[in-house]
Computed example of a mutant assay.
Amino acid sequence: MPLRDAARLACVSHKFWRSWRCYPKLDLRQETLGLNGDLISEVDNILKNHSGVGLKELIIELSSCDKVDSCYISSWLRIAVTAGIEELSLFLPHIPEEEENYFPCSSLLNGSEKSIRYLDIGISAFRPTAGLGHWRSLTRLYLSSVRVADDELEGLLYSCDALEHFGSPELP
């Protein structure tokens, strides 16, 4: 069932609402949700109503928005990025250099570094720190439009034991 229809049904049926809270794949892009309004509020509402339990794949694309407050991103990652998540794709608006600590990398340190196999980041201010953990399962790492220092990238790559692909995802 498409995400949009599942969300609507969850509003009507209490039983379906409980199952919605454990929906395994959330694709939160404007075209997927079919929204023309406030995308940030909709994504916030969907993630606050999802338990994070059973979530295997999360895609958040807000690159069409002017700006997303970092408190939203931190809150969303605390909810959705749990131990057991396997695929994470985040595409956020361009961040000015003065806000380079915009992305809360520490939100990825809650056990998810043991289960994430696919990480696709499109955030201009992704600053992986030395304590980002040991990525045992990560096989694919894609960074696009990311401002990252050589030593930070080296530290991140060094912590990825199973990495098979690094670069840009292949376009369909």
Rank of each mutant, 00 (worst) to 15 (best):
residue 1 M to C: 05
residue 4 R to T: 15
residue 6 A to N: 01
residue 6 A to C: 07
residue 7 A to R: 02
residue 8 R to Q: 14
residue 9 L to W: 11
residue 11 C to H: 10
residue 11 C to P: 06
residue 19 S to K: 04
residue 19 S to P: 00
residue 21 R to K: 15
residue 22 C to F: 10
residue 24 P to L: 09
residue 25 K to H: 15
residue 27 D to A: 03
residue 29 R to K: 10
residue 29 R to D: 04
residue 31 E to T: 14
residue 31 E to S: 15
residue 32 T to I: 10
residue 33 L to H: 06
residue 37 G to Y: 11
residue 38 D to H: 12
residue 40 I to P: 05
residue 43 V to F: 12
residue 44 D to C: 00
residue 46 I to G: 02
residue 50 H to K: 06
residue 57 E to I: 04
residue 58 L to Y: 11
residue 61 E to Y: 13
residue 67 K to H: 06
residue 68 V to F: 03
residue 72 Y to F: 10
residue 72 Y to H: 12
residue 74 S to M: 05
residue 76 W to H: 06
residue 76 W to D: 01
residue 79 I to N: 07
residue 79 I to L: 06
residue 80 A to T: 11
residue 83 A to F: 11
residue 83 A to N: 13
residue 84 G to R: 11
residue 85 I to W: 02
residue 91 F to W: 14
residue 96 P to S: 13
residue 102 Y to W: 15
residue 107 S to D: 14
residue 110 N to M: 05
residue 110 N to H: 09
residue 113 E to L: 02
residue 115 S to E: 04
residue 116 I to S: 08
residue 119 L to C: 10
residue 120 D to R: 12
residue 121 I to S: 00
residue 124 S to M: 02
residue 127 R to Y: 01
residue 129 T to D: 03
residue 130 A to L: 03
residue 136 R to I: 04
residue 138 L to S: 08
residue 142 Y to N: 09
residue 142 Y to R: 08
residue 144 S to I: 13
residue 145 S to E: 12
residue 151 D to I: 13
residue 154 E to Q: 13
residue 156 L to E: 03
residue 160 C to G: 11
residue 161 D to E: 13
residue 162 A to W: 07
residue 165 H to A: 05
residue 170 E to S: 11
